[in-house]
Design a protein around this nucleic acid. Structure first.
Length: 444
RNA sequence: GUGGAUGUAGUUCAGGGGUAGAGCACCAGAUUGUGGAUCUGGCUGUCGCGGGUUCAAAUCCCGUCAUCCACCCCA
C-alpha cells in the first residue's frame, strides 16, 4: 500500500559498514592510547552551538559554509565546523575549573556544507589535540612530537610534517611593505605545490609587483636543509628574533628525538585560518599528497579572546580521520579489520546448542571472544561464514564428542585440526593460537 | 556554490535507437562430520531517478540525485 521511501543518504554523508567501522575504532584506540601516554585528557562539547559562538558577533557575513538554522524556540543555531572554536568557548567557560597548562584531546564529528570530493565530506570526524595556557617552544614541539608518534603508531607510511611560522612570515611581509595584502598572498603561496612557482609568481606580481613577487618566491622556497631554510627566512625577515630562535629550538629538538627525516621547514605552508599567530603544521602522506593535509594545526595566541578577557595562548593540531582513512585505504595500508570474534563454535546438531553455549561461555570467561553458530547448516556453509568474518578458530563438537565431553579444535587459517580435546585443553590451545597471531601482527 | 566526467547484476565492466550481456562472486548437485581444485546445472537487473522525442530509448534530449575531477576552501 504505502510508498517505499528510498533509503538514501545526504550528499557528503555516509553510512559506515562493520569492516570500515572496525578500522575506525582501531585507529581511534591507537590515537587515544597515544594521547594518554603524553598526558592528554579527553573532553567533549555539543555538536550544536549558538551561531554567534561559532561565527562571532557579526556572524552573518562569513562565507564559511556552515549548517545553520533556527530551532523550535527560535534560537539561531549552527553545527560545529571544527573542534577548535568550540574548545575556545569551552576554555572561556570552564577555565576557572581547570588547571594550566591544560592538554586535551577531542574526537568528534564536524560538519561543513562544502562541495564533496574524495577524502572531503560534509560530515567527518576530527581528532584535535591542544596544549593551552603556555606560549613556548616546549608546547610547540610537544604537539609536533605527538603528531609524529600518532602516525608512527598508526603505521602510516612515509609521512612528512611541514612546518612554517606565521609570525616570521608576517614580519617578512611588513618588511616587504605588503602587509595589507597578506590574505591574498597567503592564498597564492598555499598553491605553490599545486600550480607551481611560475603561476604563483603571476598571481603575486598582479598584487604586489614583480620585485616583491620575486622576493616572496625566494622566501617560500625550501632549501636543501632545514637549517639553510631557517637561515634564509631569518635573513629575509630582517634578522634573528624570538620567533626565529624558537623555530631553531624546535628544529634542534626534532633532530634530537629522531624526527628530522620527517619534519620539513616549508615556508610555503601558511594555513588559511586567520587565528594562527606562530608555528603552523601540515601533514602529508608522501605517496598521496594530492589528497591534502591529513593533520594540520598551529599556534594561536588569542583564540579565546572572543569569549573572555583572559588571555589564553595555545597550540594544537587536528587529524582528519575520514580523510586519513580514505588515503590509507587507497594506499592499501588500512590496518586489518581483524575478526571481532576469535572462536566460532560450529553447530553439528541443534539439540546440542546448550552444550555449545557452555563451551563458548567458558572461553569468554578467559577473555576469548566466542560465538555459537545458531543452526545445523552444512559445515561448508559454517566454514565460509567463519572465513567471511575472519574468525581464526572453529570448535567442532558432534554427538560422539559431546558424549565423552571432548571436542575438536580447528585452526581455520592453517586448516589443521586437534581432536579429542577437553574443554580446558581446547581453551588453552585457542589461547596459544591467538597469542601467536597477535604476536605476528605486531611484528608485521 | 561554479565548470566538467561518470552512473548498466553482489562486484568489475561491455553494449551508443530494434528481445539486456561477459568474467568474477553467489546458489544447487557430483561430495549427508571437516570449506581453498574440477565438472554439471542455476539465479541475479525499477540499465541512478523523473520527464520528453520516437512505431520503438540502457542508447538521443531536458531535468534531478549521487560519485569523481578542477576552482574555492580546507581535514
Amino acid at each position: 500500500m504505502s510508498e517505499i521511501i528510498p533509503p538514501r543518504v545526504l550528499k557528503g554523508f555516509r553510512d559506515s559498514l562493520p569492516e570500515h567501522e572496525i578500522s575506525r575504532k582501531h585507529i581511534q584506540n591507537v590515537l587515544e592510547h597515544t594521547f594518554e601516554l603524553y598526558g592528554f585528557v579527553p573532553i567533549d562539547t555539543p555538536v550544536l552551538e549558538y551561531t554567534e559562538v561559532l561565527l562571532g558577533k557579526g556572524g552573518g557575513d562569513t562565507d564559511k559554509q556552515i549548517y545553520r538554522f533556527k530551532d523550535n524556540g527560535g534560537r539561531d543555531i549552527a553545527m560545529r565546523f571544527d573542534l577548535t572554536v568550540p574548545f575556545a568557548r569551552f576554555m572561556a567557560g570552564h577555565g576557572a575549573e581547570l588547571y594550566l597548562p591544560f592538554k586535551r584531546y577531542h574526537m568528534g564529528k564536524v560538519f561543513r556544507g562544502e562541495n564533496t570530493q574524495r577524502g572531503r565530506y560534509r560530515e567527518f570526524v576530527q581528532c584535535d589535540f591542544d596544549i593551552v595556557g603556555i606560549d613556548s617552544a616546549a608546547a610547540d614541539f610537544e604537539i609536533l612530537l605527538l603528531m609524529a608518534r600518532c602516525f608512527e603508531n598508526l603505521e602510516a607510511p612515509d609521512v612528512g610534517f611541514h612546518t612554517a611560522h606565521r609570525g616570521v612570515f608576517t614580519r617578512f611581509l611588513a618588511k616587504l611593505g605588503a602587509a595589507e595584502h597578506s590574505v591574498e598572498i597567503m592564498r597564492a603561496v598555499d598553491k605553490r605545490s599545486k600550480i607551481g612557482e611560475h603561476e604563483v609568481r603571476t598571481l603575486l606580481a598582479d598584487r604586489i609587483g614583480e620585485t616583491a613577487a620575486d622576493e616572496l618566491l625566494a622566501y617560500i622556497r625550501p632549501q636543501a636543509t632545514n637549517e639553510a631554510t631557517l637561515a634564509m627566512i631569518t635573513e629575509l625577515a630582517g634578522g634573528e628574533d624570538n620567533e626565529t630562535r624558537r623555530l631553531n629550538t624546535i628544529l634542534e629538538w626534532s633532530e634530537k628525538l629522531g624526527l628530522s627525516d620527517r619534519v620539513v621547514l616549508d615556508p610555503s605552508i601558511t594555513r588559511g585560518l586567520d587565528y594562527y599567530t606562530g608555528i603552523v603544521y601540515e601533514t602529508f602522506l608522501r605517496q598521496l599528497p594530492e589528497i591534502g593535509s591529513v593533520c594540520s594545526g598551529g599556534r594561536y595566541n588569542d583564540l579565546a579572546s572572543l569569549y573572555t578577557k583572559q588571555h589564553i595562548p595555545g597550540v594544537g593540531s587536528s587529524i582528519g580521520l575520514d580523510r586519513l582513512m580514505a588515503a590509507l585505504e587507497e594506499l592499501d595500508k588500512l590496518p586489518p579489520a581483524g575478526a571481532g570474534v576469535d572462536v566460532l563454535v560450529l553447530c553439528m546438531e541443534e539439540r546440542l546448542i546448550g552444550r555449545y553455549h557452555e563451551i563458548a561461555e567458558h572461553m569468554r570467561g578467559t577473555g576469548i571472544r566466542a560465538e555459537v553458530y545458531p543452526e545445523a547448516k552444512k559445515l561448508a556453509a559454517q566454514f565460509s561464514y567463519a572465513e567471511k568474518r575472519g574468525i581464526p578458530i572453529g570448535i567442532i563438537c558432534g554427538a560422539i564428542e559431546a558424549e565423552s565431553s571432548v571436542m575438536n579444535l580447528k585452526n581455520l587459517e592453517t586448516r589443521t585440526s586437534d581432536d579429542q580435546l577437553s574443554l580446558a585443553e581446547a581453551t588453552q590451545k585457542a589461547r596459544l593460537i591467538l597469542q601467536r597471531r597477535s604476536h605476528q601482527n605486531y611484528n608485521a
